[in-house]
């Protein structure tokens, strides 16, 4: 899909981006600290580091001790680098248990922003599944619970709202991916009191820019971005291409960092959650959440360049 921006619209967005950039200035701005920039949480409290850790596929390692320890090493690098948000789901095979193993091994329960999902067609099973998931994570409760891929979302969301009232969960949300069911997601965002929405957004998949991201800003809904690298396909495809010289203008040393900076520069985005099995990639991802971030012109250039390769 092509994106042609009118001059007026571009100016408006630039102004918005500039304004947001000020409000979203990192806690670490001006310091030598390598901590990632943080974004305001929709429910208040401390800021949320702009790069999190996804667990789709990468943390589904079964009971293999070597692979469990490898994932724990990834989590250690993530926490040491200032990351907090880890996202998983009952749908992700053994990923929840892998996260729980890592939290146990690293004694890191107080360092994690635990984001999980409800994924069952049984609309009455919200609390039961939440308890099972919390057991696997080895946590008492979640900071964020989301309805996964809009499955039985009405029933689950009603229960999640009640759980939030009771203090059984910090914040609630809803997720989609691959650009699916955006129209329905938009209706939910407009009518339901959710704190977060999770969706796919990257320099190639930009539909969310049209309605969902502006609506999230308007409603004060946090945005978690999944599939920033299209499950690795994007970075794999770009690996053989030289990084443009102008990437250095925003401090990007790799395609992955350039993509993440593109995403994080959107004023509506709270954090991106790339998944990885590699410690060096975790560090690379966290390092992308540093100023400077690209302005609108550079974002268009990033998108155009990646689309053309």
């Amino acid at each position: 899909m092509t994106h042609q921006w009118s001059r007026r619209r571009r100016r408006l967005l630039q102004a918005l981006a500039a304004g947001t950039a000020l409000t979203a200035l990192p806690v670490s701005w001006g310091r030598a600290s390598p901590s990632p920039i943080t974004r305001r949480s929709p429910t208040g409290g401390s800021g949320i580091p702009a790069v999190g850790l996804g667990t789709w596929i990468t943390f589904n390692v079964g009971d293999n001790q070597r692979l469990l320890d490898s994932c724990a090493n990834v989590m250690k690098a993530f926490f040491d680098g200032g990351g907090t948000v880890i996202d998983s789901s009952p749908m992700y095979g053994s990923s929840q248990n892998t996260v729980g193993y890592g939290l146990d091994k690293l004694d890191a329960r107080d360092r994690v922003f635990a984001a999980d999902k409800v994924w069952t067609r049984d609309g009455d099973a919200t609390r039961r599944q939440q308890r099972e998931s919390a057991d696997l994570w080895r946590v008492k409760q979640f900071d964020l619970l989301q309805v996964h891929n809009l499955v039985s979302w009405r029933e689950h969301l009603d229960t999640l709202k009640a759980m939030k009232e009771e203090g059984a969960v910090g914040s609630i949300g809803i997720t989609t991916s691959h650009g699916r069911r955006h129209r329905e997601l938009e209706q939910i965002m407009a009518s339901e009191p959710i704190d977060f929405v999770q969706l796919t957004y990257n320099p190639v998949d930009r539909e969310a820019e049209e309605r969902l991201l502006p609506l999230a800003r308007e409603k004060g809904i946090g945005v978690i971005v999944n599939r920033p690298f299209r499950q690795g396909a994007l970075t794999e495809r770009l690996a053989k291409e030289p990084l443009p010289d102008w990437a250095a203008d925003v401090g990007a040393n790799s395609w992955a960092q350039l993509i993440l900076k593109f995403i994080l520069a959107h004023p509506a985005v709270t954090c991106a959650i790339p998944a990885t099995t590699r410690v060096d990639h975790v560090r690379e991802n966290l390092a992308a959440a540093q100023a400077p971030l690209p302005d609108d012109d550079l974002r268009e250039r990033i998108s155009d360049t990646i689309r053309s390769l």
Binding site: I57, T58, N60, V61, H178, G179, D205
Partner: peptide, 20 residues
């Protein structure tokens, strides 16, 4: 955005080749 027909078989998998 991707359509159903543009899915790669790996999009339907829960696990990586390494783990399998």
């Amino acid at each position: 955005m991707e359509t159903l027909f543009s899915y790669h078989p790996r999009d339907l998998l829960l696990f990586s080749p390494r783990v399998y």
